[in-house]
Design a protein around this nucleic acid. Structure first.
Lengths: 213, 213
DNA sequence: GCGACGCTAGTCAAGTTTGACTAATGAAGG
DNA sequence: CCTTCATTAGTCAAACTTGACTAGCGTCGC
């Protein structure tokens, strides 16, 4: 699963209706350009593609209020909402060792109810455990480890990552169970997007000047 | 940087001369299909592209000895060797939080001399430290953390990953400094590729049957 | 003696990602 | 005024990735 679709659906959904540039700014607000491949090209592509597939509807809109080419606003369809929750649940559950996917899941988890988020994270812990068992059983050669030479370090690195990742997840579960954060259906939700015209307080040092990394 | 080029260059270089299917098998031997995007399509694409760019030379070869279409053998050029070491050094040094790149670097690090590998890993530690300082200084809002709401968990996750990653790297440095493994110029190198016809002892449960994940 | 199956060695189209480029507006400076 | 510059909003070609497909050859069973 590519993380872009999840992020874009999450951003559009929180606005109700949003154009590409707004999504782009939200993702920067979330810091997503630092930990995922959220670049303008990918974002606009995802919007168009998902519109073509019926996950979003595109409303043609008049030339923008503040310079630049005319902008298109998007809205999430029912089908898109389904897909959004499918992706979100998968992001929180599966241990496919892609940290950007988990990060996106963390940013959007409050769209779920507290109990469900907890259940998904527990499932995640179980699947890490399962992965660990499969790998260590499978890759330990007859004559003990070390027979693999330095190649064994790769496995050791992955196992270490899995273990520390699991430990961190257990901490998160404890915080959520202890009442942290506001989940779906618990009153005033946390505002995770920028209003039209609002400035990003966590903008990168050099805000995209003509883009180019 | 995409990890595929590094892996493919490393594999071809160890053979001296190799065709695509051989590279594909080596990467499976290394377990790369588990922790990177090393799929047939990507591998063959990388071979062709790098041949076009002069990093590899392609030798047309007669139809294979054991069925299948005629195969092309590749060899690393001088330019390709330069690029290989550039990529390898970068993989070991930079903390761009992509674990597959580090994994590839670990698998190929013995192509460097021990002292250089150690120096690169120390640089890696320094750059993790630097990243950590920048992020924590920059992202902590005036009114303390927690103002970010659940979004703060994303940062916490990344900082935790950086810290545990650094700890693991320090362990690796200690092992290498303690004399583990055989690096370049230290006699008989570890055999990291499969000879023609040799079977992969760590093959996945179901060896690629018609491919398809 | 032939048909099914698996292995060898790839190709290909569709989709995605990248990095650089464009074009319109408005504000600031001289 | 008029040039320069940042901001808004997005396009585009080239490269890369993905998953499914192809085709030759051996061999095993019956």
């Amino acid at each position: 699963m590519s993380v872009i679709r999840l992020l874009v659906l999450g951003a559009v959904r929180q606005h109700g209706r949003a154009h590409g540039y707004q999504v782009r700014n939200d993702l920067e607000y979330w810091g997503a350009h630092e930990w995922s491949n959220a670049k303008p090209g990918s974002i606009y592509h995802a919007l168009k593609q998902m519109a073509k597939q019926g996950l979003l509807v595109a409303h043609e809109t008049a030339p923008s209020t503040a310079g630049g080419p005319p902008r298109t606003e998007y809205e999430v369809t029912e089908q898109g909402t389904e897909e959004y929750f499918r992706l979100l649940r998968e992001a929180l559950t599966s241990y496919d060792q892609k940290p950007d996917v988990l990060s996106a899941g963390l940013g959007l988890m409050v769209d779920l109810e507290r109990e469900e988020a907890l259940a998904l994270l527990e499932r995640r812990l179980a699947s890490i455990e399962e992965w660990r068992k499969a790998v260590t059983e499978y890759y330990v050669p007859e004559n003990g480890p070390g027979e693999l030479g330095h190649i064994g370090e790769i496995m050791d690195f992955w196992v270490h990552s899995a273990d520390t990742g699991a430990a961190w997840t257990r901490g998160l579960v404890a915080r959520i169970r202890g009442g942290a954060y506001t989940f779906a259906g618990e009153g005033e939700p946390f505002v995770g997007v920028l209003a039209e015209g609002e400035e990003n307080p966590y903008a990168t040092r050099q805000p995209h000047p003509g883009d180019a990394e």
